[in-house]
């Protein structure tokens, strides 16, 4: 944004000031994330620059140490199961919500979104009270159910957003041409809401993969997920392996950001194509 030609001197000054300010804020946002990454390649176990040498020893520890590996395995398993369950339940609910003029729709929506709204610590103690009563604490099903409850709001929101621009006449056309309802869903509805479902699934995956507070409260002592391992690592004895784990997770979220951006562009293209053919 260049300053317009008619700008006065003080306007030009304000403009350059704004520019410098914005640069500093953006630096503030990105710097901690960038500063942590090189430290994971430090050959010594301290956290400052300049680094005496480079090595992959912390990655070796992260990938070779059984504690970190079992934590990673549990986190991935938990996140995958949560994603499957949350995407299925959330997509169904979003389809139901966007179709009809249901009585009490706003109230239903509020209930479905509530796990996203309530602070994690409250969800954690509430679930602890309930799960210890029904004997689900310290079990994998317990963790999956808890994370599914936390993750479904994201799926409901993303799929509902895709459905607001969905042309239901396409479905009516499919039905009137004699296709079975499920066939219409599979061949017509599903391909169109797919971008929303995938981004919802990504959100669900990340929600579970990053979640630590509920896990601390309802998991058994031997059920250590990756975030829990990191959390207790920082609290007790901070080891540079944590920087390797953090860097891996940053790369993971970068990949996710790129995927979501590609999905968004694809959805925009489909929408434009649909508008043009009408």
């Amino acid at each position: 944004m260049p300053a317009p030609a008619y700008a006065t001197r003080s306007e030009r000054f304000a403009y350059w000031f704004l520019r410098a300010f914005v640069a500093l804020v953006l630096l503030f946002l990105i710097a901690p994330i960038l500063a942590i990454m090189p430290l994971s390649f430090n050959s010594e176990s301290f956290f400052s620059y300049p680094m005496p040498g480079y090595s992959l020893r912390w990655y070796q520890d992260f990938l070779g140490n059984e504690r970190w590996q079992s934590a990673l395995r549990l986190s991935v398993l938990l996140a995958v199961l949560t994603t499957i369950l949350a995407t299925t339940l959330g997509t169904m609910a979003a389809l139901g919500l966007s179709r009809s003029r249901l009585p009490g729709k706003a109230a239903i929506m509020a209930v479905l979104i509530s796990p996203m709204v309530v602070p994690a610590i409250i969800s954690a103690i509430a679930m602890f009270f309930f799960y210890s009563k029904v004997g689900l604490t310290g079990t994998l099903p317990g963790l999956v159910l808890a994370h599914t409850a936390l993750a479904t709001p994201f799926v409901v929101i993303t799929v509902t957003a895709t459905l607001t621009s969905f042309d239901w006449n396409l479905m009516r056309a499919g039905l009137s041409l004699g296709a079975a309802p499920f066939t219409v869903f599979r061949r017509v509805v599903f391909p169109l809401i797919m971008p929303g479902m995938i981004s919802g699934a990504l959100f669900a995956f990340v929600t579970s993969f990053d979640e630590v507070i509920v896990v601390i409260f309802i998991a058994g002592p031997e059920q250590r997920t990756l975030p829990r391992q990191m959390f207790s690592g920082i609290r007790e004895q901070i080891s540079p392996t944590i920087t390797a784990a953090a860097t891996t997770l940053i790369l993971f979220s970068t990949l996710m950001l790129i995927t979501l951006e590609l999905l968004r562009r694809r959805a925009e293209r489909t929408r434009l194509a649909a508008v043009q053919t009408h």
Binding site: I33, F209, D210, V212, P227, M230, A246, L249, S253
Partner: peptide, 10 residues
Amino acid sequence: WTSLLVRTTA
């Protein structure tokens, strides 16, 4: 998009 825990760790 970077997890809250990772940023706190950083």
